[in-house]
């Protein structure tokens, strides 16, 4: 009786749960290529559909654990733009914010951008967590929406699991920005990322390109001990985030470089032996 009931439920809700193998080999649903070759390679072939969490850095150095982090909008705008470029159908991006939303000129893009992302973005404000969760849930069910970016402060494991399963079923992406103090909170996110300010020692002058250190905190199916931190850099002209070439040798290598292949090989060996 029970197996039959379970089969019936599975048929009614065909949710595909990502296995570690499927996640890394990129066989499970569509992928979003981030435009950062190394990151894409580490994840298989890009970000899979589902829930991904981003922890921004606090603005003040002496902020407590409960301080809200600065949402990494530059990175999220870059990902949303990548999604628009890669989708055959131009979908909409819904930004669910608690007061803070991306500044429109940054959302519009740099000199070479046509502002398509801004034209296909919807901004929804909501103060409390349950309302934000409802908005994200409703938006994910809309066929015109391809991605949802939401302020995920205070979301518990049940909420994240619900959103993740829905996003997987609908083959969409949901990115939650969370304060750094919630790193220990249980979550069903497929990947968790930490974004910190990065200051290159000894580099000054008149060229200011914002840089961030990107750390993969969790990724189902990927051994984190072999994953380096990446340095990302904001490209003002294109309104995009690039892997910092200056530091590629230290913490990341461009794709195709021999070192990368060796490192990947080592990663697989370790995972298989484990």
């Amino acid at each position: 009786m029970l197996p039959e009931s379970l089969r019936a439920i599975q048929q009614r809700c065909p949710v595909r749960v990502a296995t570690a193998e499927a996640l890394v080999h990129g066989e499970d649903g569509p992928r979003l290529r981030t435009g950062w070759d190394e990151v894409d390679a580490a994840l298989g072939s890009g970000l899979p559909t589902g829930l991904h969490e981003w922890f921004g850095a606090p603005l003040e150095a002496n902020a407590g654990r409960r301080a809200a982090g600065v949402p990494p909008f530059c990175i999220l705008l870059h990902l949303a733009r990548q999604l628009l470029e890669q989708s055959p159908q131009a979908g909409w991006t819904v930004w669910v914010c608690d007061g803070q939303r991306p500044y429109a000129p940054a959302a519009r893009g740099g000199d070479t951008n046509d502002g398509r992302l801004l034209r296909r973005s919807l901004f929804v404000s909501a103060r409390d967590g349950p309302t934000r969760q409802w908005i994200a849930d409703t938006a994910l069910r809309c066929r015109a929406v391809r991605a949802v970016m939401a302020d995920g402060s205070g979301f518990d494991r049940a909420a994240t699991r619900r959103l993740h399963l829905l996003a997987r079923a609908q083959e969409k992406w949901i990115w939650l920005t969370r304060p750094p103090g919630e790193r220990d909170t249980l979550s069903a996110a497929l990947t968790r990322w930490q974004v910190r300010w990065h200051a290159e020692p000894g580099v000054g002058g008149t060229v200011v390109n914002p840089q961030w250190k990107l750390t993969l905190l969790r990724c189902k199916g990927v051994p984190l001990e072999t994953i380096p931190d990446w340095i990302l850099e904001w490209d003002h002209a294109e309104g995009a985030v690039r892997l910092s070439t200056a530091l590629a040798g230290a913490v990341g290598l461009p794709s195709g470089a021999p070192g990368f292949a060796i490192r990947r090989g080592y990663a697989w060996a370790q995972r298989n032996s484990a």
């Binding site: 909409w92 819904v94 429109a104 959302a107 801004l118 034209r119 973005s121 919807l122 901004f123 929804v124 404000s125 909501a126 309302t131 409802w134 908005i135 409703t138 938006a139 809309c142 066929r143 015109a144 929406v145």
Partner: peptide, 21 residues
């Protein structure tokens, strides 16, 4: 579909809560 989404959001949250730029 997007129109329907906006209708639902506006109905619950009000006109000011759902905007484009």
């Amino acid at each position: 579909a997007l129109g329907r989404l906006v209708d639902r959001l506006v109905d619950r949250l009000g006109d000011d809560a759902v905007t484009a730029l």
